[in-house]
Write a protein that binds this DNA or RNA. Structure first.
Lengths: 159, 159
DNA sequence: TATTGTTATACTCTATAACTATA
DNA sequence: TATAGTTATAGAGTATAACAATA
Protein backbone atom coordinates (compact mmCIF):
# COMPACT_ATOMS: atom_id res chain seq x y z
CA UNK A 1 0.00 0.00 0.00
CA UNK A 2 1.16 3.54 -0.48
CA UNK A 3 -0.45 6.33 1.47
CA UNK A 4 -2.63 4.84 4.10
CA UNK A 5 -5.33 7.02 5.59
CA UNK A 6 -8.48 5.06 5.11
CA UNK A 7 -11.73 6.52 4.02
CA UNK A 8 -13.51 3.33 3.17
CA UNK A 9 -16.82 3.63 1.38
CA UNK A 10 -16.15 7.06 0.09
CA UNK A 11 -13.55 7.13 -2.61
CA UNK A 12 -10.55 9.09 -1.40
CA UNK A 13 -10.42 11.09 -4.61
CA UNK A 14 -14.04 12.09 -4.36
CA UNK A 15 -14.03 15.90 -4.28
CA UNK A 16 -14.50 17.08 -0.71
CA UNK A 17 -17.33 19.36 -1.76
CA UNK A 18 -19.28 16.39 -3.04
CA UNK A 19 -18.57 14.48 0.12
CA UNK A 20 -19.93 17.31 2.23
CA UNK A 21 -22.99 17.61 0.03
CA UNK A 22 -23.86 13.95 -0.04
CA UNK A 23 -23.22 13.36 3.65
CA UNK A 24 -25.35 16.40 4.43
CA UNK A 25 -28.10 15.17 2.20
CA UNK A 26 -27.94 11.78 3.85
CA UNK A 27 -28.16 13.39 7.28
CA UNK A 28 -31.25 15.30 6.21
CA UNK A 29 -32.83 12.16 4.80
CA UNK A 30 -32.07 10.24 7.97
CA UNK A 31 -33.86 12.84 10.05
CA UNK A 32 -36.76 12.93 7.63
CA UNK A 33 -37.10 9.19 7.97
CA UNK A 34 -37.01 9.44 11.75
CA UNK A 35 -39.71 12.12 11.67
CA UNK A 36 -41.89 10.02 9.41
CA UNK A 37 -42.37 7.67 12.35
CA UNK A 38 -44.47 10.35 14.03
CA UNK A 39 -46.02 11.36 10.71
CA UNK A 40 -44.34 14.74 10.44
CA UNK A 41 -42.09 16.37 7.89
CA UNK A 42 -38.95 18.40 8.60
CA UNK A 43 -40.78 21.54 7.51
CA UNK A 44 -43.34 21.05 10.26
CA UNK A 45 -40.53 20.51 12.67
CA UNK A 46 -39.01 23.75 11.48
CA UNK A 47 -42.22 25.61 12.24
CA UNK A 48 -42.42 24.15 15.73
CA UNK A 49 -38.80 25.06 16.19
CA UNK A 50 -39.52 28.60 15.08
CA UNK A 51 -42.03 28.81 17.90
CA UNK A 52 -39.74 27.31 20.50
CA UNK A 53 -39.34 30.54 22.41
CA UNK A 54 -42.91 30.17 23.58
CA UNK A 55 -43.91 33.75 22.83
CA UNK A 56 -46.81 34.57 20.56
CA UNK A 57 -45.93 35.66 17.03
CA UNK A 58 -47.87 36.90 14.07
CA UNK A 59 -47.84 34.63 11.06
CA UNK A 60 -45.97 37.33 9.18
CA UNK A 61 -43.23 37.33 11.78
CA UNK A 62 -43.00 33.57 11.87
CA UNK A 63 -42.90 33.25 8.08
CA UNK A 64 -40.19 35.89 7.85
CA UNK A 65 -38.08 34.22 10.50
CA UNK A 66 -38.37 30.93 8.63
CA UNK A 67 -37.62 32.56 5.31
CA UNK A 68 -40.78 31.36 3.60
CA UNK A 69 -43.76 33.20 2.07
CA UNK A 70 -46.65 33.68 4.46
CA UNK A 71 -48.90 31.82 2.07
CA UNK A 72 -46.84 28.73 2.54
CA UNK A 73 -47.08 28.88 6.28
CA UNK A 74 -50.84 28.58 6.12
CA UNK A 75 -50.94 24.91 5.25
CA UNK A 76 -48.18 23.98 7.66
CA UNK A 77 -49.95 25.68 10.54
CA UNK A 78 -53.22 24.06 9.58
CA UNK A 79 -51.84 20.59 10.24
CA UNK A 80 -50.11 21.61 13.44
CA UNK A 81 -53.25 23.28 14.78
CA UNK A 82 -55.37 20.28 13.85
CA UNK A 83 -53.06 18.17 15.94
CA UNK A 84 -53.25 20.57 18.83
CA UNK A 85 -49.56 21.39 18.72
CA UNK A 86 -50.05 25.07 17.95
CA UNK A 87 -52.60 27.54 19.24
CA UNK A 88 -53.92 30.49 17.26
CA UNK A 89 -56.01 33.47 18.22
CA UNK A 90 -57.02 36.76 16.77
CA UNK A 91 -54.91 39.68 17.91
CA UNK A 92 -56.93 41.81 20.32
CA UNK A 93 -55.87 45.14 18.83
CA UNK A 94 -56.10 44.28 15.11
CA UNK A 95 -58.62 41.89 13.63
CA UNK A 96 -56.43 41.20 10.62
CA UNK A 97 -53.61 39.75 12.63
CA UNK A 98 -53.44 36.27 14.10
CA UNK A 99 -51.11 35.25 16.88
CA UNK A 100 -49.67 31.76 17.03
CA UNK A 101 -47.74 29.96 19.72
CA UNK A 102 -46.76 26.51 20.83
CA UNK A 103 -49.42 24.72 22.87
CA UNK A 104 -48.36 22.81 25.99
CA UNK A 105 -48.59 19.53 24.11
CA UNK A 106 -46.75 21.20 21.23
CA UNK A 107 -43.90 21.95 23.59
CA UNK A 108 -43.88 18.35 24.74
CA UNK A 109 -43.93 17.19 21.14
CA UNK A 110 -41.08 19.48 20.23
CA UNK A 111 -39.00 18.08 23.06
CA UNK A 112 -39.70 14.59 21.80
CA UNK A 113 -38.70 15.55 18.30
CA UNK A 114 -35.46 17.05 19.52
CA UNK A 115 -34.83 13.79 21.31
CA UNK A 116 -35.53 11.99 18.06
CA UNK A 117 -33.12 14.27 16.24
CA UNK A 118 -30.50 13.54 18.85
CA UNK A 119 -30.87 9.83 18.39
CA UNK A 120 -30.71 10.17 14.64
CA UNK A 121 -27.57 12.21 15.09
CA UNK A 122 -26.02 9.64 17.38
CA UNK A 123 -26.37 7.04 14.66
CA UNK A 124 -24.63 9.41 12.27
CA UNK A 125 -21.62 10.07 14.44
CA UNK A 126 -21.34 6.60 15.89
CA UNK A 127 -17.72 5.71 16.34
CA UNK A 128 -16.44 9.25 16.76
CA UNK A 129 -14.85 10.20 20.05
CA UNK A 130 -15.98 13.31 21.88
CA UNK A 131 -12.91 15.09 20.64
CA UNK A 132 -13.51 14.04 17.07
CA UNK A 133 -17.10 15.23 17.30
CA UNK A 134 -15.95 18.58 18.57
CA UNK A 135 -13.36 18.78 15.83
CA UNK A 136 -15.92 17.90 13.17
CA UNK A 137 -18.18 20.61 14.52
CA UNK A 138 -15.38 23.13 14.47
CA UNK A 139 -14.32 22.31 10.93
CA UNK A 140 -17.88 22.40 9.66
CA UNK A 141 -18.26 25.72 11.41
CA UNK A 142 -15.47 27.14 9.30
CA UNK A 143 -17.09 25.83 6.13
CA UNK A 144 -20.38 27.25 7.29
CA UNK A 145 -18.84 30.66 7.74
CA UNK A 146 -17.23 30.51 4.33
CA UNK A 147 -20.57 29.81 2.75
CA UNK A 148 -22.24 32.54 4.74
CA UNK A 149 -19.58 34.86 3.44
CA UNK A 150 -20.07 33.83 -0.16
CA UNK A 151 -23.80 34.26 -0.15
CA UNK A 152 -25.45 37.25 1.46
CA UNK A 153 -26.62 35.69 4.69
CA UNK A 154 -26.21 32.29 6.27
CA UNK A 155 -26.72 28.98 4.54
CA UNK A 156 -30.24 28.34 3.35
CA UNK A 157 -32.79 26.24 5.14
CA UNK A 158 -32.52 22.53 4.54
CA UNK A 159 -36.11 21.83 3.54
CA UNK B 1 -19.66 34.86 28.77
CA UNK B 2 -19.69 31.34 30.05
CA UNK B 3 -18.34 28.45 28.04
CA UNK B 4 -16.16 29.65 25.27
CA UNK B 5 -15.38 27.35 22.32
CA UNK B 6 -16.16 29.39 19.31
CA UNK B 7 -18.17 28.32 16.40
CA UNK B 8 -19.14 31.72 15.19
CA UNK B 9 -22.05 31.88 12.81
CA UNK B 10 -23.34 28.52 13.73
CA UNK B 11 -24.78 28.35 17.20
CA UNK B 12 -22.67 26.05 19.34
CA UNK B 13 -25.74 24.22 20.62
CA UNK B 14 -27.06 23.60 17.16
CA UNK B 15 -27.40 19.81 16.86
CA UNK B 16 -24.47 18.44 14.89
CA UNK B 17 -26.82 16.59 12.57
CA UNK B 18 -28.41 19.87 11.55
CA UNK B 19 -25.04 21.44 11.04
CA UNK B 20 -24.01 18.65 8.72
CA UNK B 21 -27.27 18.88 6.81
CA UNK B 22 -27.24 22.62 6.35
CA UNK B 23 -23.58 22.84 5.44
CA UNK B 24 -24.07 20.02 2.96
CA UNK B 25 -27.06 21.76 1.49
CA UNK B 26 -25.08 24.96 1.20
CA UNK B 27 -22.27 23.14 -0.55
CA UNK B 28 -24.73 21.69 -3.05
CA UNK B 29 -26.26 25.11 -3.65
CA UNK B 30 -22.85 26.67 -4.15
CA UNK B 31 -22.02 24.13 -6.83
CA UNK B 32 -25.41 24.58 -8.46
CA UNK B 33 -24.75 28.30 -8.63
CA UNK B 34 -21.34 27.71 -10.16
CA UNK B 35 -22.84 25.39 -12.76
CA UNK B 36 -25.51 27.91 -13.66
CA UNK B 37 -22.74 30.05 -15.14
CA UNK B 38 -22.44 27.48 -17.94
CA UNK B 39 -26.19 26.94 -18.02
CA UNK B 40 -26.17 23.44 -16.63
CA UNK B 41 -27.76 21.78 -13.64
CA UNK B 42 -26.10 19.35 -11.22
CA UNK B 43 -28.22 16.56 -12.63
CA UNK B 44 -26.70 17.08 -16.07
CA UNK B 45 -23.31 17.10 -14.49
CA UNK B 46 -24.18 13.81 -12.84
CA UNK B 47 -25.04 12.28 -16.18
CA UNK B 48 -21.76 13.44 -17.72
CA UNK B 49 -19.98 12.10 -14.70
CA UNK B 50 -21.74 8.78 -15.11
CA UNK B 51 -20.23 8.60 -18.58
CA UNK B 52 -16.76 9.62 -17.51
CA UNK B 53 -15.29 6.20 -18.14
CA UNK B 54 -15.64 6.87 -21.85
CA UNK B 55 -17.17 3.50 -22.68
CA UNK B 56 -20.52 3.22 -24.39
CA UNK B 57 -23.46 2.34 -22.19
CA UNK B 58 -27.08 1.58 -22.80
CA UNK B 59 -29.52 4.07 -21.35
CA UNK B 60 -30.77 1.35 -19.05
CA UNK B 61 -27.31 0.83 -17.65
CA UNK B 62 -26.67 4.50 -17.24
CA UNK B 63 -30.00 5.14 -15.54
CA UNK B 64 -29.43 2.25 -13.17
CA UNK B 65 -25.96 3.45 -12.26
CA UNK B 66 -27.37 6.90 -11.53
CA UNK B 67 -30.27 5.50 -9.56
CA UNK B 68 -32.97 7.17 -11.63
CA UNK B 69 -35.77 5.81 -13.79
CA UNK B 70 -34.86 5.44 -17.44
CA UNK B 71 -37.72 7.72 -18.37
CA UNK B 72 -36.09 10.52 -16.51
CA UNK B 73 -32.82 10.09 -18.29
CA UNK B 74 -34.46 10.81 -21.63
CA UNK B 75 -34.85 14.52 -21.09
CA UNK B 76 -31.42 14.92 -19.54
CA UNK B 77 -29.76 13.20 -22.47
CA UNK B 78 -31.75 15.27 -24.91
CA UNK B 79 -30.16 18.48 -23.72
CA UNK B 80 -26.68 17.01 -23.57
CA UNK B 81 -26.97 15.59 -27.08
CA UNK B 82 -28.31 18.87 -28.41
CA UNK B 83 -25.20 20.52 -27.06
CA UNK B 84 -22.96 17.92 -28.59
CA UNK B 85 -21.65 16.70 -25.25
CA UNK B 86 -23.01 13.19 -25.61
CA UNK B 87 -23.20 10.93 -28.64
CA UNK B 88 -25.90 8.33 -29.18
CA UNK B 89 -26.26 5.54 -31.70
CA UNK B 90 -28.38 2.50 -32.20
CA UNK B 91 -26.82 -0.71 -30.96
CA UNK B 92 -25.76 -2.81 -33.92
CA UNK B 93 -27.04 -6.07 -32.52
CA UNK B 94 -30.36 -4.92 -31.10
CA UNK B 95 -32.46 -2.18 -32.61
CA UNK B 96 -34.22 -1.48 -29.32
CA UNK B 97 -31.05 -0.50 -27.54
CA UNK B 98 -29.25 2.81 -27.79
CA UNK B 99 -25.66 3.32 -26.79
CA UNK B 100 -24.51 6.61 -25.34
CA UNK B 101 -21.07 7.93 -24.59
CA UNK B 102 -19.25 11.15 -23.94
CA UNK B 103 -18.26 13.04 -27.09
CA UNK B 104 -14.77 14.55 -27.30
CA UNK B 105 -16.14 17.98 -26.51
CA UNK B 106 -18.20 16.40 -23.74
CA UNK B 107 -15.00 15.12 -22.19
CA UNK B 108 -13.50 18.58 -22.42
CA UNK B 109 -16.63 20.04 -20.91
CA UNK B 110 -16.58 17.53 -18.07
CA UNK B 111 -12.99 18.43 -17.27
CA UNK B 112 -13.96 22.07 -17.14
CA UNK B 113 -16.85 21.30 -14.83
CA UNK B 114 -14.61 19.35 -12.51
CA UNK B 115 -12.33 22.35 -12.45
CA UNK B 116 -15.33 24.50 -11.61
CA UNK B 117 -16.28 22.10 -8.83
CA UNK B 118 -12.78 22.29 -7.48
CA UNK B 119 -12.86 26.06 -7.36
CA UNK B 120 -16.24 26.02 -5.68
CA UNK B 121 -14.83 23.59 -3.16
CA UNK B 122 -11.80 25.77 -2.51
CA UNK B 123 -14.09 28.61 -1.52
CA UNK B 124 -15.85 26.25 0.89
CA UNK B 125 -12.74 25.06 2.67
CA UNK B 126 -10.90 28.35 2.58
CA UNK B 127 -8.93 28.80 5.76
CA UNK B 128 -8.45 25.12 6.52
CA UNK B 129 -4.92 23.75 6.55
CA UNK B 130 -4.08 20.67 4.53
CA UNK B 131 -4.19 18.64 7.70
CA UNK B 132 -7.55 20.02 8.68
CA UNK B 133 -8.93 19.24 5.25
CA UNK B 134 -7.70 15.69 5.51
CA UNK B 135 -9.18 15.41 8.98
CA UNK B 136 -12.52 16.77 7.80
CA UNK B 137 -12.52 14.26 4.99
CA UNK B 138 -11.72 11.44 7.36
CA UNK B 139 -14.44 12.40 9.84
CA UNK B 140 -17.03 12.82 7.13
CA UNK B 141 -15.98 9.45 5.80
CA UNK B 142 -16.94 7.87 9.10
CA UNK B 143 -20.31 9.59 9.02
CA UNK B 144 -20.75 8.49 5.43
CA UNK B 145 -20.12 4.90 6.37
CA UNK B 146 -22.56 5.11 9.26
CA UNK B 147 -25.24 6.33 6.92
CA UNK B 148 -24.43 3.68 4.35
CA UNK B 149 -24.81 1.16 7.14
CA UNK B 150 -28.16 2.50 8.26
CA UNK B 151 -29.71 2.52 4.83
CA UNK B 152 -29.26 -0.33 2.42
CA UNK B 153 -26.62 1.12 0.17
CA UNK B 154 -24.60 4.31 0.17
CA UNK B 155 -26.01 7.80 0.71
CA UNK B 156 -28.45 8.92 -1.90
CA UNK B 157 -27.68 11.14 -4.83
CA UNK B 158 -27.61 14.83 -4.05
CA UNK B 159 -29.95 16.07 -6.76
C1' DT C 1 -44.15 -12.50 -23.94
C1' DA C 2 -40.36 -9.57 -22.54
C1' DT C 3 -37.47 -5.50 -23.03
C1' DT C 4 -35.79 -0.68 -24.63
C1' DG C 5 -36.55 3.80 -25.09
C1' DT C 6 -40.23 7.14 -25.10
C1' DT C 7 -44.37 9.69 -24.01
C1' DA C 8 -48.49 10.48 -21.12
C1' DT C 9 -50.40 11.06 -16.74
C1' DA C 10 -50.79 12.27 -12.17
C1' DC C 11 -48.96 14.05 -8.00
C1' DT C 12 -46.12 17.01 -4.86
C1' DC C 13 -44.07 21.13 -3.77
C1' DT C 14 -43.27 25.77 -4.63
C1' DA C 15 -43.73 31.00 -5.46
C1' DT C 16 -46.57 34.64 -7.12
C1' DA C 17 -50.74 36.70 -7.93
C1' DA C 18 -55.44 37.54 -6.76
C1' DC C 19 -58.80 38.04 -3.11
C1' DT C 20 -61.17 39.29 1.69
C1' DA C 21 -61.42 41.67 5.59
C1' DT C 22 -59.85 44.74 8.17
C1' DA C 23 -57.26 49.13 9.16
C1' DT D 1 -54.53 52.95 0.23
C1' DA D 2 -52.12 49.58 2.81
C1' DT D 3 -51.65 45.23 5.35
C1' DA D 4 -52.63 40.16 7.34
C1' DG D 5 -54.08 36.05 6.23
C1' DT D 6 -56.01 33.09 2.71
C1' DT D 7 -57.00 30.94 -1.68
C1' DA D 8 -56.15 30.41 -6.68
C1' DT D 9 -53.02 29.76 -10.31
C1' DA D 10 -49.17 28.28 -12.66
C1' DG D 11 -44.74 26.17 -13.02
C1' DA D 12 -41.00 22.84 -12.01
C1' DG D 13 -39.70 18.24 -10.99
C1' DT D 14 -40.77 13.66 -10.05
C1' DA D 15 -42.34 8.54 -10.43
C1' DT D 16 -45.38 5.37 -12.49
C1' DA D 17 -48.09 3.76 -16.10
C1' DA D 18 -49.03 3.29 -20.86
C1' DC D 19 -47.10 2.84 -25.45
C1' DA D 20 -44.50 1.55 -29.89
C1' DA D 21 -40.84 -0.95 -31.81
C1' DT D 22 -38.15 -4.83 -31.58
C1' DA D 23 -36.61 -9.16 -29.82
Amino acid sequence: MRKGPATRGIGPDEPLGFVIASVGNAAALAFETALAAVDLHPRHFAVLRGLRGGAEQTQQQLAASLGIPASRLVGLLQLLIERGLVQRREAPHDARVKLVKLSPSGLTELRGLLQLAGESEQRLIRGLTEQEQAELRRLLGVVYDNVALERGSGPARVW
